[in-house]
Design a protein around this nucleic acid. Structure first.
Length: 668
DNA sequence: GGGTAAGCAGTTTTT
DNA sequence: CTGCTTACCC
């Protein structure tokens, strides 16, 4: 089987896939067949005899990583157990797993904190530095910690009041033996600095590096790539500055410029032919994004036909909007035979999802939601995970506090305060303090209380031992859940709603099954509880979906990146939503990123795009009048069918329009 | 000292 | 919807 790049790819794609040596910068526009090019590039490298183990491909999401691996597998028909395709964060986990013992204070059984855990840890640190309470702007402090840690910001006289809190937070994290998401990128680099021999080993191993979604890498992520690639110089980055939509998380598309400076001999390739959208949709997207300054010159073009493929409606309010969209989708499915999974409904904020979801539910439209609260973030699942985390790392105070009295075991606030005082005094973890307090002779604890604490300690210690054997962990988990009587807890806690309790317990059962499946998976050579816990912390969405096929896609625009749909609906295209009021408040320059978001949304559509903008919308409790997004005005009017605000919403016209356009395109 | 019901506020985007 | 505070009961 020889891959013929020239036959499979266009000229530019082919060039991009063939140059495997030296630095390459690929600017790949939306829908330009980027994934296809990358897949062929790696397949080509393997065919040339480059060993799998020398290749490192870094992506942004787990989903992208999985997809890339699957496609390479399909193309080459090879087993890919030596190829490293991973997200930046998962790669960080891998490095830390192999070498965290070299970092002072940390141990191998470290816990990864997600946003919620981090919040709790920050609160804790604030409490200890006397900065807690209602005045604390948790969101801001969280950001500050991240910015300082990743080097995006330095201490100055506007923020150094938080230095104490920051130091405390760092100390706590080491004491908890916990790392946050930023640490997964930053700690490996500290490790490399302190132990150049470790860095050399990674440089030796990964001679070829690829980075996907390069516009979304942060400065510290780029530094990591640079560290690894600077000697061998076989590094290929692929990105599109117009699709950079994660700057709030530290993404910096200036990295494209940095790359040009650090690798001046790079070959630069632009993929500008779009294979996805109708001429009409593409023209709209091009016109919108042209309003941004400071972008790489490029113009997407397509050989596809035109057709009036964009329609704009102005429903009365968000309920009418949801009804309209839902009805239209239903008729598309019934009368045009369009599959639900070919339709995407994309929103700017998670809060817009609920109304739509409700409508789809009552119209019996099968749908799946990506983004928002992930399965692993549900309270009942987090509880169970906390038990597992404490069993694997008892020093993790944040998770201990979550479960110490869930289900109720008679350790209330006052007792807890006493224990925490002791922990503070002894500079030890809460778990250790509990052990101490049960042994103290003069302890003022009542016997019953002491009994409760001992019972808890025995429970954790017992299951810790069982989990650490690495055998029958699923069974162990089942026993644990039974022993703490989590079912009984759910029943009493949701005494007014037994159905809810049942549903929650169903989730718990599901979680156990995931865990057992993972444990049984032969790809896991030696499954440990640490590996599992680290893995699920990095999982956000979609990994849990059972049947993907045949379901309507409902998600945020952020979550839609990299996807495409035959028909796309964009609800809530209103000022204050997109561009988002909060974003604009923060910094008026954010308008460009909001525009990029709108651009990403438009370019998801292959054949048809519906934009709706409500005239009134309920936000929290109040109904407010809204105005259409300014971005609508940036689409040339000759490209769209504009329905007047007072026009009665009519799904039939929209449907007929679509049919006519299809017929016209087919005729061409 | 612990448990619990009721009332209340807070939702930009995510690894 | 749910996490958090508050006030009150056992």
């Amino acid at each position: 089987m020889a891959i013929q790049l020239e036959k499979e790819l266009n000229e530019m794609q082919c060039k991009a896939a063939s140059i495997t040596e030296g630095p390459v910068l690929i600017i790949a526009g939306a829908g330009s067949g980027k994934t296809r090019m990358i897949t062929f590039r790696i397949a080509h490298m393997l065919e040339k005899g480059i060993p799998q183990s020398s290749i490192l491909a870094l992506t942004f999401t787990n989903k992208a990583a999985r997809e890339m691996e699957a496609r390479i597998k399909e193309l080459t028909g090879k087993k890919l157990n030596k190829l490293t395709v991973s997200t930046f964060h998962a790669f960080g986990v891998k490095i830390l797993r192999e070498s965290i013992n070299n970092l002072e204070g940390y141990r191998e059984n470290y816990t990864i904190y997600d946003q919620a855990d981090k919040n709790a840890a920050v609160k804790e640190a604030a409490l200890h530095t006397g900065m807690g309470g209602e005045n604390l702007d948790l969101y801001m402090v969280n950001n500050l910690i991240s910015e300082i840690k990743t080097g995006r910001k330095k201490w100055d006289n506007t923020n150094d009041v938080y230095k104490k809190l920051y130091d405390r937070y760092l100390n706590h994290m080491v004491a908890y033996n916990a790392v946050d998401f930023d640490d997964l990128i930053v700690l490996p680099q500290i490790l490399f600095e302190k132990h150049p021999e470790v860095l050399d080993a990674y440089r030796d191993r990964y001679k070829y590096i690829m980075v996907d979604e390069f516009q979304d890498t942060s400065m510290s992520q780029y530094n990591m790539v640079k560290l690894l690639a600077i000697n061998n110089r076989n590094v290929c980055v692929v990105g599109d500055d117009d699709q950079s939509i994660y700057s709030w998380r530290g993404a910096n598309y200036q990295n494209i410029v940095n790359f040009e400076l650090d690798f001046p001999e790079r070959v630069e390739i632009k993929l500008e032919q779009n294979y996805r959208s109708t001429k009409n949709i593409l023209a709209a997207a091009n016109n919108v994004i042209a309003n941004n300054t400071n972008r790489k010159e490029k113009e997407l073009w397509t050989g596809a036909a035109g057709g009036k493929s964009i329609e704009i409606f102005y429903p009365e309010n968000e309920i009418k909007e949801a009804e309209f969209i839902s009805d239209l989708i239903y008729r598309f499915s019934q009368e045009e035979g369009i599959k639900f999974h070919d339709i995407g409904v994309l929103v700017r904020t998670n809060s817009l999802i609920a109304v739509l979801e409700e409508q789809f539910l009552s119209n019996n439209i099968p749908y799946k939601v990506s983004g928002g609260q992930s399965f692993f973030q549900r309270k009942e699942i987090k509880d169970i995970i906390s038990y597992m985390r404490i069993a694997s790392n008892p020093d993790d105070d944040v998770n201990l506090l979550r479960i110490i009295n869930t289900p109720r075991r008679g350790i209330g606030n006052t007792t807890l305060l006493k224990i925490r005082g002791l922990a503070e005094h002894q500079e030890c973890s809460i778990f250790s303090a509990m052990t101490l307090i049960t042994r103290a002779e003069d302890s003022s604890l009542k016997d019953s209380l002491r009994g409760h604490i001992i019972e808890f300690l025995d429970l954790i210690n017992g299951y810790r031992e069982r989990f650490l054997t690495g055998k029958n962990m699923g069974k162990t988990l089942r026993n644990l859940i039974e022993e703490i009587d989590y079912w009984g807890y759910l029943i009493t806690d949701n005494s007014k709603n037994e159905k809810l309790a049942r549903w929650k317990f169903g989730n718990v059962q599901k979680f156990i099954e995931f865990f057992e499946n993972w444990e049984r998976n032969p790809d896991n050579i030696k499954p440990t509880i640490y590996d599992y816990l680290n893995k699920i912390t990095l999982v956000t969405r979609d990994d849990v979906d059972e049947e993907e096929e045949g379901k309507l896609n409902l998600m945020t625009i952020h979550a839609s990146k990299g996807l495409e749909f035959m028909v796309v609906f964009l609800p809530g295209v209103e000022d204050h939503i997109i561009p988002h009021a909060r974003a604009m408040e923060e910094n008026p320059n954010n308008i460009e990123e909001e525009r990029r978001l709108f651009y990403v949304a438009i370019t998801r559509a292959r054949e048809k795009l519906f934009i709706t903008s409500c005239r009134n919308r309920r936000v929290m409790r109040e109904v407010t009048e809204t105005i259409p997004s300014r971005f609508i005005d940036e689409i040339p009017s000759e490209l769209i069918i504009l329905h007047e605000p007072d026009e009665v919403l009519d799904t039939s016209t929209a449907l007929a329009q679509f049919a006519a356009m299809k017929a016209k395109m087919a005729a061409k």
